[in-house]
Structure formats: C-alpha cells, structure tokens
Amino acid sequence: MKTLLFGLAIPLLAVAQIASVDLTAPTAGYRFDAESQSLRSIEGVPGAASLGEAMALGVALESVWIAPSQRLAFGVAPGGTTLVRVGLDGATASGEATEIPAGEVFYSPGSQAMAVRAGSRLEIWTGLASSPQRLASLEIDEGVAGVAVSDDGHAVTGLRDGVLLRLSESGPVELATGVRAAAFLNDTHDLLLVQDGALVLLPKLDGDRREELAALGEASQLRLSADGSKVLLAAGSKLLVMPARGGEAVAVEAGGAVHSLATANGVAFQVALTDGRLYLLDAGEGPPTLSLVDSLREGGVQ
C-alpha cells in the first residue's frame, strides 16, 4: 500500500476490540464526611449497599460538591482559595489542585458544566471531565440562591424570594414567580420547576410554552437522576418519583423528614433524613424501592 506525499490515506476497515476487562466492587455514589474531611463511597447496589470508610484523597477538604455523574467532585481545603478537583472511580479517588477560585458549586445535570459562586460573583466553567475552561463570569445579587446551569453552560438561572431569574452578563431577567426549586434537563435548555405546588416544564426557558406536568402539593426539593430520565421530589416525609418529562408519579414514604436529595448511579437517588439515616431509592424498573444504607453522624449529611 502506498502512502503518497499528499498524505491521502486509504480508509482502514472498522474494528472494535476488547482491550481490557476488569472486575471491581461497585459503588452507588459518594457522601461527604465532615469528620474525616473526606469522601465516603456508598458500596454496593441499591437494596444491598453500605457506607464505606473515608477515602484517602491526599488532601483534607472542608466542603465538597459531588457531580451528578458521581465521577468527579470539587471541594475546598481548609483555608484554601481555589477548588480541588477530585476524580472518582469506584473505591479510589485522587485530588489535584486547580486554578478555579473557591466557592459554592452548582453542577449541570450531565456534569459537563458547573457554576461556582463566591459572594456576588458567579463563574461558569465547562469541560469538567477533562480540562475545565471558564466560559463566563457574572455579577449577581447576593440574595440569589438555588443556581442551576445547563450542560453547555450557556443557560444559568437562580432563585430570589421565589422569583426565577435568568442570569447573564447583561443582568438578570425575571422568568417566573412562586418557584421553590429548578433544574435543567440533560443536554438542553429545558428547565423543570417546582412552582405553586406543581411540577412545571419550561422548554428552552420560554415562559409562553409553559407546561404543567403534575400536581405536587408542598414539594420543596427536586433532583434529576444521573441518566436524566427520572425526577425525584420531596415534600416533608413523602417522596415522589416520575419521568422527567411528565407521566405517572409514584409516592414513597420516607419514614422521616427528608433533609436532602442527591443523585446516585443510573436511576438511583440518595435520600438523607434529618435523623441521620441515609437511604438509596431505586427508580428503575418496577415500583420505586427505598433501602437503608447507614446512619450518618451529625455533620456528615451534605
């Protein structure tokens, strides 16, 4: 076969070959443990899981925000001024310094982008899986909370006193009122809201195309599954599971007041109660099931 000076290569046949196979113990997600200033993995699968020991990150952290993909996290070391990036792979983890200024982290649903908030400054970073790049830097009102960012980093919202704002370099724009929680759907600018007791979809942030998906009562927390197909809502001690773009909602009793929701692998969620119990909720095939993982020490709940 000739290779010509112009470099006109003849296409090769397409072949996929297995380069390696390895077996390890599974993890369903991670929790921050304030006592050890490290992360603990949730070992096992929903229905058979337990909390592992503190992981050796190589650095002590006083705050950590774990990405929905459960494959990386960003945290702050005591006295640190920049974020530490932590790569997660099963039972192993490793930390490395970054130049991203320290602040509270809000992830996009696909873990591809994040918003980092320090005071009135909000920085948007993309390319989290490989090499984070700063996309934008916004000045926001310090009263804005509940920041949500899309996977491409170009759409950012926040909440202030129940008002949903679109945040950009040209200033905030009011989108809706009576909002208690908001989250973007994977790879889109479609936004899910908990608004006036209902689950609402705003396709492409367009209020004129507002679509009410379900009645929720007093739900105040909203979380998407890691694969973006299901949404979990919490209202007191009651949990609601439904498809992300609407459908039948299934209620599950948590057995205690819900403190926080977090994602786990696939279509599973982490549910932490105010009494320290941690559960995994499997929203996969069949009715959702809740299984106890462990009881966390005070301060260990994220």
């Binding site: 296409p11 996929a16 380069a19 390890t24 113990a25 599974p26 099963g90």
Partner: peptide, 19 residues
C-alpha cells in the same frame, strides 16, 4: 474487597475502535 460487598460486582470492559 469483594467479600465486604457480598455478590455485587462492576464489570468494566474497555473497547478500542479504529473508525
């Protein structure tokens, strides 16, 4: 490590594609 996790497992297969 596996004994601590009962019968649970994670298989990871790495594939190489030319095209």
């Amino acid at each position: 490590d596996a004994a601590r996790n009962g019968g649970t497992f994670r298989v990871r297969a790495n594939y190489r594609l030319s095209q």
